[in-house]
Amino acid sequence: MIIEKVIGNVATFEKRAPHVERVYLQSDDLVKRIQRVVTDHGNEIGIRLKDHRELLDGDILFMNERNMIIVSVKEDDLLVIKPISIQQMGEIAHQLGNRHLPAQFEAGEMLVQYDYLVEELLMELSIPYKRENRKVKQAFRHIGHRHD
């Protein structure tokens, strides 16, 4: 089976099928328009999205009256950063920007993928953080940039 479009997302879709299969993806895989995956029931499917959109947690790839196939994002190993002042936020944002590390922001927290060097930097700057496994809503986007 080849999936060429997303039907909807379980968060906003009213119809349900009695049986659900899941495709577990790393957050990095959400940006791939073409990929081959296997459901948690061992069914192999191809994804070749025609429109230029990223997959999201809960996207419905297939549905009929008996079955639906849903995207589930695996948890990422993250540093959850909680600066206590605008000074700390500026310092860590500047440092992470110099490293071209992508970040996401959620409920007053800065999320970055785990990196031991960033963890050492956070300790050095005394910026509150914790390391945890968490699902992210979208892929971390690496922004290409060159210093000439």
Rank of each mutant, 00 (worst) to 15 (best):
M1W: 08
I3W: 00
E4R: 07
K5L: 02
V6K: 07
G8I: 06
N9W: 12
V10I: 15
A11Q: 13
A11D: 13
K15T: 08
R16H: 11
R16F: 02
A17D: 01
A17E: 02
P18H: 07
P18I: 06
H19F: 15
H19T: 13
H19N: 14
V20I: 14
V20E: 14
E21H: 01
V23I: 12
Y24S: 06
Y24Q: 04
D29E: 14
V31D: 07
K32Y: 10
I34G: 02
Q35V: 05
R36K: 09
V38Q: 11
N43C: 02
G46V: 06
R48G: 05
D51H: 06
D51N: 10
H52P: 04
R53N: 07
L55A: 09
L55F: 08
D57L: 08
N64T: 03
N64A: 04
R66N: 13
R66T: 12
I69R: 08
V71G: 06
V73C: 01
V73E: 01
E75R: 08
E75N: 05
E75C: 04
D76H: 07
D76Q: 11
L78Q: 02
L78E: 03
L79T: 01
I81Q: 02
P83E: 05
P83R: 03
I84M: 14
S85R: 06
I86Q: 12
Q87G: 09
Q88S: 12
M89N: 11
G90N: 15
E91S: 11
I92H: 04
I92M: 10
H94V: 07
Q95F: 15
G97V: 03
N98D: 05
H100L: 12
H100Y: 10
P102C: 00
A103I: 15
Q104Y: 09
F105W: 12
F105Q: 13
A107H: 11
A107W: 06
G108S: 02
G108E: 01
G108C: 00
E109I: 00
M110I: 15
V112H: 10
Q113W: 04
Y116V: 09
Y116Q: 09
L117K: 15
L117W: 11
V118M: 09
E119H: 07
E120I: 09
L122W: 02
L122Q: 08
M123Q: 13
E124V: 04
E124I: 03
L125Q: 15
S126H: 15
I127C: 02
I127A: 00
K130D: 14
E132S: 08
E132G: 05
E132P: 05
E132F: 05
N133Y: 11
K137I: 09
K137A: 15
K137D: 15
K137F: 03
Q138V: 13
Q138S: 14
A139S: 11
F140W: 03
R141I: 15
R141K: 15
G144F: 08
H145Y: 12
H145S: 12
H145Q: 11
H145M: 10
